[in-house]
């Protein structure tokens, strides 16, 4: 059966699948804008990732 053929279940579940797709799309958009907002408001840009980086080390005052 070619993959392009539409099964009856595709029609029956169209509304449900569309709803899930829109929710996922909305979720991705929300996470994107949340990230932008957090970065603009000075959220942490880099964290500890097992690599030594000068910007994350405590400055030696002596």
């Amino acid at each position: 059966m070619p993959i392009t053929e539409t099964h009856e279940i595709h029609q029956r579940r169209f509304g449900r699948n569309l709803g899930v797709a829109l929710c996922l799309l909305g979720f991705v958009g929300l996470v994107f804008f949340l990230t932008i907002s957090k970065l603009r408001n000075g959220g942490t840009l880099e964290g500890f990732d097992h690599a030594v980086r000068p910007s994350l080390t405590v400055e030696d005052t002596e």
Binding site: L30, F33, L34, I36, S37, K38, R40, N41
Partner: peptide, 8 residues
């Protein structure tokens, strides 16, 4: 809080 954070 920022609008996006409040909305989320």
């Amino acid at each position: 809080v920022p609008a996006v954070v409040g909305f989320a």
